[in-house]
């Protein structure tokens, strides 16, 4: 019986100690700058801050999630990864038909740390279980449909040059911590974050190779 208790406790500790990060596209953005200096991304939470936020979830609960919101709808500006880079290493001019597509599921992105899971259902990503609804209620998010807009852009690329299309934008970040209980025992905990792209701006740059 003692062995079983020890194994069970170790299992719970292992789950709680896990700090794997379920990342989304926005975490590959070249730069994300908050409008307010004291705001930060989940990945930049200091250990002591994270511990402090977890104290807000100190009380026990029979079932379900307790959620603490650290940042709610903070405005950010970002420079996305390069959307497209086309090289012309040849000796003649080439014409490119570029199709740019913007999908709503990339406009609402999520990530989590600890033992909080992120699931992809079709093209839509969600937090594990009932946590998704709890977080969306806390931050006032309701949209989950998948839509897309696309258009073509036709461009000439001279020999020895390359074309880059860069996306910049504005977005809203919400993040915090959450803990799940099962018969008053904490079974999962970690950090969560949502990143909603509100506006995208595009830029074309043509440069010489080398």
């Amino acid at each position: 019986m003692k062995k079983a208790m020890v194994i069970a406790v170790l299992a719970v500790v292992a789950v709680l100690a896990s700090r794997s990060v379920a990342a989304d596209t926005y975490q590959t953005y070249q730069e994300i700058v908050f409008a307010e200096e004291d705001e930060r991304l989940l990945q930049d939470f200091a250990e002591e801050d994270y511990a402090d936020y977890m104290t807000h979830l100190a009380g026990k609960k029979m079932f379900g999630w307790k959620v603490f919101v650290v940042t709610k709808g903070a405005e950010v500006e970002f420079v996305s990864e390069t959307k497209l880079k086309i090289f012309n290493n040849g000796f003649s001019t080439i014409k490119h038909d570029i199709t740019l597509e913007s999908k709503l599921e990339t406009k609402f992105q999520i990530s989590a740390t600890g033992s909080i899971g992120v699931k992809a259902k079709g093209d839509v990503k969600k937090f594990d279980g009932a946590l998704d609804a709890s977080i969306k209620t806390e931050i006032g998010y309701s949209k989950s449909e998948v839509t897309s807009e696309r258009y073509e852009f036709n461009i000439i690329v001279d020999p020895g040059t390359y074309v880059t299309i860069v996306m910049r934008g504005k977005g809203l970040v919400s993040n915090g911590v959450a803990k799940n209980f099962f018969f008053w025992i904490a079974t999962k905990q970690g950090g969560w974050e949502t990143f909603t792209v509100t506006t995208e701006y595009y830029e074309i740059i043509k440069e010489k190779i080398g």
Binding site: T93, I156, E203, I204, I205
Partner: peptide, 17 residues
């Protein structure tokens, strides 16, 4: 046809809002 004629070209393009 975009990019024609070939007397000039653009090297950067974006808008200020």
């Amino acid at each position: 046809a975009p990019g024609e004629p070939r007397h000039l070209d653009f090297t950067r393009l974006y808008a200020v809002f």
